[in-house]
């Protein structure tokens, strides 16, 4: 009798423990929102830092491009002045240089719009990022393609037009005796 009482008591205690464990498991989805949220925030912070790094790289690239263009433009302007002072007809080069200058401005504008977009993405909160990240990245990629096209246009215009104008003027310079 006493033994069966002990067994029954042990069973009751075991069942009570199992029920408590089951309740605890049922409550877990609600409690997990904390760690899950934390994980999402950490992941977003990692992505945000990568975006900041990407912006820094693009800024360095843009500076290199702007410096190179400034150098080339300065030399072409100086050449134009020199040739003009010597009495050569530089009207075509002058006109084309103005067009080229417009291309530099376009590159600068498009690049600024692109970086603004990246900064907009980096400024999102984790909650905002959940809904908008991918669409904003898609927009940024579109803007990046425009910037790249501007760079290609600048290069092509140099090769096909500015360089050709300079060579045309070169052919008018008398050969050295």
């Amino acid at each position: 009798m006493r033994r069966s009482c002990i067994i029954a008591g042990a069973l009751v205690i075991a069942m009570a423990l199992m029920t408590t464990a089951a309740w605890a498991q049922e409550e877990q989805p609600g409690q997990e929102e904390g760690p899950l949220q934390q994980r999402l925030e950490q992941r977003w912070e990692m992505i945000r830092q990568r975006i900041e790094l990407v912006i820094t790289r693009f800024e360095n690239n843009e500076e290199r491009h702007a410096r190179a263009y400034e150098k080339v433009k300065g030399k072409v302007e100086a050449f134009l002045e020199e040739m003009s002072a010597k009495g050569y007809d530089v009207s075509k080069l002058s006109q084309d240089l103005a067009t080229w200058d417009g291309m530099f401005e376009e590159f600068s504008r498009d690049y600024a719009a692109f970086v603004d977009k990246l900064e907009e993405i980096a400024g999102l909160t984790p909650e905002q990022a959940k809904g908008r990240l991918m669409s904003l990245i898609k927009e940024a990629r579109g803007l990046l393609r425009t910037v790249r096209q501007d760079v290609l246009d600048i290069r092509l215009f140099y090769q096909q037009t500015i360089r050709a104008d300079i060579q045309e003027l070169r052919n008018q310079v008398p050969e050295a005796a």
Binding site: G74, E77, Y158
Partner: peptide, 22 residues
């Protein structure tokens, strides 16, 4: 820098050198 570039053209070779530079 870009500014203050000085270019002297006395012969075709000077233009060739400029083109190489560009």
């Amino acid at each position: 820098g870009g500014g203050g570039s000085e270019v002297r053209i006395e012969s075709r070779e000077d233009v060739d050198a400029l083109l190489e530079d560009l």
